[in-house]
Simulated scan of single mutants.
Amino acid sequence: METRIVEVETFKVKGYAMKGPVAEIPGLWDGLNTEIANRGIVAEESFGLCLAMEGQEIYYLAGVEADLAEAFPEEAIVPAGKFIVALAEGGVSAIPTTFNALMAMDSVKMRHSFSFERYIHPAGSNGYDIEVWLPIE
């Protein structure tokens, strides 16, 4: 698995949030993607933020950068800092495996912040890539 270190400035994501089992996340994305299409928003990337995890319940926000989605109801601010990033090779089903592999790396010292997925879907493309972003020191 190839990784890279990226340092980002603070940014805001707006979209739709849920608290519940991980199995509800695809429905949240369906709703967000429908709204994006209905509003004519052109976003070349979107984000799935893990805001909190407690037992089997996740607090998750699916959204796009706030300047593209002012009317969306939920928002989260991703604090500036470093992240270790890896491609989730194999699509959505590879996201948990990729997160686990990053967290198991001896050289990784996690910091308190949001971890997230970044979905990269350039305008005009039919597919997308998924990157996993884990906050590090």
Rank of each mutant, 00 (worst) to 15 (best):
N38Q: 15
A104C: 14
L49F: 08
K19S: 12
P135E: 03
L61A: 06
K109P: 05
A52R: 07
G31E: 08
G63E: 04
G48L: 01
V132I: 15
L61Y: 03
W29L: 08
G31I: 03
N126Q: 09
A94T: 01
L32N: 03
I36N: 02
A80T: 10
D30S: 14
G63H: 07
I41V: 10
A52M: 03
F114N: 07
R4P: 03
E35T: 15
L134A: 05
Y16G: 00
Y16N: 04
E54S: 10
V22R: 09
R118I: 13
E24A: 14
V6W: 04
G15A: 02
S107F: 15
V13Q: 01
V108D: 08
W133E: 08
L32F: 06
L49N: 05
G20T: 06
E9S: 11
Y119S: 10
G81F: 06
G63M: 01
E35I: 09
F83P: 09
M103W: 12
D129S: 12
I130P: 01
L134C: 09
A88Y: 02
Y16E: 07
E35F: 10
W133V: 05
V132N: 08
E54L: 10
R118P: 06
Q56I: 13
P26R: 14
I36T: 02
E35S: 13
R39H: 00
A17M: 01
Q56L: 11
P96D: 00
E44R: 12
I84T: 05
A76F: 04
A86Q: 05
P79M: 02
M105T: 08
T3D: 06
F11N: 05
G90H: 11
A52F: 03
P135N: 07
A62L: 05
I120N: 06
D129V: 05
M105F: 04
L28F: 00
F99E: 06
M110I: 12
Y59N: 10
A71F: 04
V132Q: 00
A69C: 01
A69Q: 02
Q56G: 14
R118Y: 10
E131G: 07
A37R: 13
L68N: 09
V13E: 03
G81I: 09
M103I: 12
V132G: 11
I84K: 04
I5H: 05
S46G: 10
F47R: 01
V132S: 07
V22Y: 14
V13L: 01
F72W: 00
E7Q: 15
M110D: 08
W133K: 02
A94G: 10
Y128F: 13
V42W: 06
E74T: 11
I36D: 00
G31W: 06
T3R: 04
